[in-house]
Design a protein around this nucleic acid. Structure first.
Lengths: 231, 231
DNA sequence: CGGAGGATTGAAGGCTATCAAAGTCCGTGG
DNA sequence: CCACGGACTTTGATAGCCTTCAATCCTCCG
């Protein structure tokens, strides 16, 4: 019996739809590991040695300038695929935001296996295309939106992404959720400073659009207002 | 004889490596068309009806806000693939920056063909992964770099991309090149205003780092300075 | 030559960053 | 149980970068 049999993302990750025999082979190549919150899994500009499926938790993908400025360029949730197959180096670091479980493969093993299994490559292609779409719409946010628009867009995206946690079909955006980001990390996603993020959160609270029960908790009171603020 | 036989990007586009028989099938599905500078090929949020290979010319991928702000989210050069396969809608408009030639396929035909040809899907996957890497490094630029850094990064990228025009292996970055962008389009790539772009260009000229023989021509005088300005 | 669109230049203002300090939360240890 | 320490967050004051608004200047074509 392979550990895949009990995998909670078995039917949503790129492994979905593979035959039992194939799963067994893949399972033999991969191993589970946990990553503590704040712990890195992949380093920017390092050789691309491993790829992984996210089983549980949230991780950030970041790039940095030499002088230490950081930009979060992606966020990986359960069932997402991380790492850079078919390439020599990884262009982004991957660090866990929460305690996380991942299913890790050696990149060379994975590459070889993928080339022999078109169905797997096809799933990976679909995911990569969807991620590219998301990334491009994020570029619009970074390049052309104001701080209030960025914050509103961010909260809406969070409320949509953070519901995709179960096997149930999407049940609409969450009204209340717990951010996997600190204020600094929100700033790193949006291309802002921590002070600006804090001020915008406070303003949304004062305007009665959201409630902030604790540092990480968000409750959306007036979603319509948030949507129209998002620009 | 298929038109592919004379295609100048035949060995660099995703068609590379396909067997003669496969090329013939693909050729029967596709048709060449020209796109005049400024003319759109794909509209944002429209049904994704076609995909294409760029044969000649440069095209921009853009997204816009309701109130008309535009962000260029990608640029397609000869041999690049454009459009959104395996998806219902296209998230970006595609507009020619220069007069362009493209090889167009109906998306449904292409999807069907691709699913039957793993080698083609693999090439598409490699391209998509590379494009995602590039897009992510552009996010860092948009979110964290200053106007002078953005302009310097842009000119360096242009000098690298605009040499990839022939069959010859890369011969290093171009010292002199012709921008396929107006000042407004440069602004739309970098998330700046046209005035800021203009001022930064003038400053680089006054500092002796570049020459600007005409509106579209750029000659890099001091590449080292440009690289260090890029941050 | 003259017009039109794009580009440059200038002046002023606003948005966000920066610098600085106070406040809050939470785990630790007395 | 409560005091303490440290990290994170909020708030305030100021500065500066980039935008906005406006006018002028190219440069390309008819």
């Amino acid at each position: 019996m392979s550990s895949c049999d009990t995998c909670v993302v078995r039917n949503r990750a790129i492994c979905a739809g593979l035959e039992d025999r194939e799963i067994a082979t893949l399972s033999a190549m991969g191993r589970r590991r946990t990553v503590a919150a704040g712990e890195p899994l992949i380093w920017e500009d390092d050789d691309s040695l491993l790829v992984a499926n996210v089983i549980d938790g949230v991780l950030k993908l970041t790039t940095s300038t030499e002088d230490g400025r950081e930009q979060i360029v992606g966020v990986a949730y359960p069932s997402d695929f991380i790492g850079r197959p078919f390439g020599q180096t990884s262009k982004a670091s991957v660090v866990a935001l929460t305690d996380a479980k991942v299913c890790v493969f050696s990149r060379s093993d994975f590459d070889r296996y993928a080339r022999e299994h078109p169905e797997l490559e096809h799933k990976l292609l679909e995911r990569t295309l969807a991620e590219l779409d998301r990334t491009r719409s994020w570029m619009m946010l970074l390049g052309r939106k104001t701080a209030p628009e960025k914050i509103a867009s961010f909260l809406i995206e969070m409320s949509e992404r953070l519901t995709e946690t179960g096997c149930a079909p999407t049940l609409g955006p969450a009204r209340r959720f717990s951010l996997p980001f600190s204020r600094q990390q929100v700033a790193d996603v949006l291309g802002l400073t921590i002070e600006t993020v804090s001020r915008q959160f406070t303003k949304l609270k004062n305007d009665g659009i959201v409630e902030l029960p604790s540092r990480r908790e968000v409750e959306i009171i007036n979603r319509g207002a948030l949507v129209s603020l998002a620009g």
